[in-house]
Design a protein around this nucleic acid. Sequence first.
DNA 1: GCGACAG
DNA 2: ATCTTGTCGC
Length: 234
Amino acid sequence: MSADPARRQRWLHPAALADAAVAQREIAEACEVRDRIGPVRMVAGADTSMKWRDSRGPIHAAIAPLSWPDRTPLPAATITDIPPFAYVPGYLGFREAPALVAAWERLPEKPAILFVDGHGRAHPRRCGIATHLGVLLDVPTVGVAKSILCGRIEGELGAEPGATAPLIDCDEVVAMAVRTRVRSLPVYIGTGHRVSLDTAVAWVLRLSEGRRLPLTTRLAHDAANAVRRGHAGG
DNA sequence: GCGACAG
DNA sequence: ATCTTGTCGC
């Protein structure tokens, strides 16, 4: 898609953890922080679901599309896969991206922007799962995370919906803490790939609809859970 | 060395 | 991420 097969293989299935860190730095280098988005007639959310305390069991991935601007949910593309290893903070992409890439390939039509559950550049090596997936697919992605992996909020975050405060790591703005709903914890929005930070925040706000998480995330979460519950032993 | 740590 | 029940508020 965006790289030669050998490099792509290392970006998706690194041989060891040390190779994974190298791959993440390469992906971060390939990541584009400026807007490069086509006509938006469809957007989508990406999420995975798994059994409680079974970090090595099967993961169920879903990509849930939504027509734009009418916001009509379209059939989700799903797949069940066995992750290569248990969850390790900082390496989420290697665990979930293979299944999400497979789900993406099952979509009859490709969305213009993909909203991913997790961070974009707000990662120690600037390679959260949103960036990881975006570069692999060469698709515009936005990271929507519910908690911080690294960095700290600069200043005070207002209480009104729409209020923002930068998330800074090593003197670099890596994401925005955004209040999407009154009296709710903030959400951390970041560039995944080919979407600027301002554009990412604007899109999440217009998809929030008075809830903490954007509609795309909610639909993907529901679709992934539905697959898990319909799965043997789910 | 110790604590922190997306999903 | 995940389980489960209840409770509070618009």
